[in-house]
Simulated scan of single mutants.
Amino acid sequence: MAPSVLVACDDRCVIDEPTRSEDRLRELVILRRVRDRIDREYAKPLDVEALARGAHMSSGHLSRRFKQTFGESPYSYLMTRRIERAMALLRRGDLSVTEVCFEVGFSSLGTFSTRFTELVGMPPSTYRTEHDHGPGIPSWLERQATRPIRNREARPSPDQ
């Protein structure tokens, strides 16, 4: 980050506001690049430490700032991205659940099934059989309508 410009005023120092906003903008650009990297490389073995090294930040600082900026941790964002892609592949129907698991970057079928169930509310095999939409729905609309919702974000069902 660029050094802050200091302005003397009545025996005290005040940080020049434009410099702080410039630093914040630089940090937002870096965080956006991290998010874009997750979007591009979700199927590769990514972890917060690797993302932080690429952004020249500590993993703790990256996690805090990413969550403040985007509303979820880098790890949660990565899991959501992987599950979104898995949902699309399962709807397509030409790959088995195991093939989808490895295609989206999981190395364990058990972990994949657990994360999928947590985010989507049903196991991947059930999702595959219940959500075979076939052609006709534009992909952008289908992605938007079927984006996984974390349990804490889901609305309570009417019977609760």
Rank of each mutant, 00 (worst) to 15 (best):
P3L: 08
P3T: 06
V5A: 00
V5F: 12
L6I: 13
V7M: 13
V7T: 12
A8W: 14
D10T: 02
D10P: 04
D11Q: 08
C13L: 14
C13M: 15
V14L: 15
I15H: 14
D16G: 03
D16F: 13
E17F: 05
R20I: 08
R20V: 11
D23P: 00
D23R: 14
R24V: 00
R26G: 01
R26N: 02
E27G: 01
E27R: 06
V29G: 03
V29D: 04
V34W: 15
V34S: 03
R35M: 15
R37H: 06
I38D: 11
I38Y: 13
I38L: 07
D39C: 06
R40G: 00
R40V: 09
E41A: 05
E41M: 07
Y42N: 01
A43M: 11
A43V: 06
K44E: 15
P45M: 06
P45W: 11
E49L: 12
E49A: 02
A50T: 13
L51N: 07
L51V: 01
A52D: 09
A52R: 10
R53Y: 12
R53I: 02
A55L: 11
A55V: 12
M57E: 11
S58L: 12
S59N: 02
S59C: 00
S59H: 01
H61W: 12
H61F: 05
S63L: 06
T69M: 10
F70T: 02
G71I: 07
G71H: 11
E72W: 12
S73T: 15
Y75T: 11
L78P: 12
M79H: 05
R82C: 04
R82M: 09
I83R: 03
I83H: 04
E84M: 01
L89T: 00
L89C: 05
L90W: 05
R92V: 01
D94S: 04
L95M: 15
S96Q: 09
S96F: 01
S96H: 02
V97C: 04
E99T: 04
E99L: 05
V100I: 00
C101R: 04
C101M: 09
F102V: 00
V104T: 03
S107N: 02
S108A: 03
L109S: 08
G110M: 04
T111R: 08
F112N: 03
S113N: 11
F116E: 10
T117S: 06
E118D: 11
L119I: 01
V120I: 04
V120W: 14
V120H: 13
G121F: 03
M122W: 11
P123R: 10
P124M: 08
P124S: 07
S125Q: 08
R128I: 00
R128G: 01
R128D: 02
T129S: 12
D132H: 15
D132L: 13
H133G: 00
G134R: 12
P135N: 00
P135F: 07
P135A: 07
G136F: 10
P138E: 11
S139M: 10
S139R: 14
L141E: 05
Q144M: 08
A145D: 02
A145W: 15
T146I: 08
P148S: 10
P148V: 12
I149Y: 09
R150E: 04
N151W: 10
N151R: 09
N151A: 05
R152Q: 14
R155K: 13
S157A: 09
S157Y: 09
P158A: 08
P158L: 10
D159T: 02
Q160T: 07
Q160N: 06
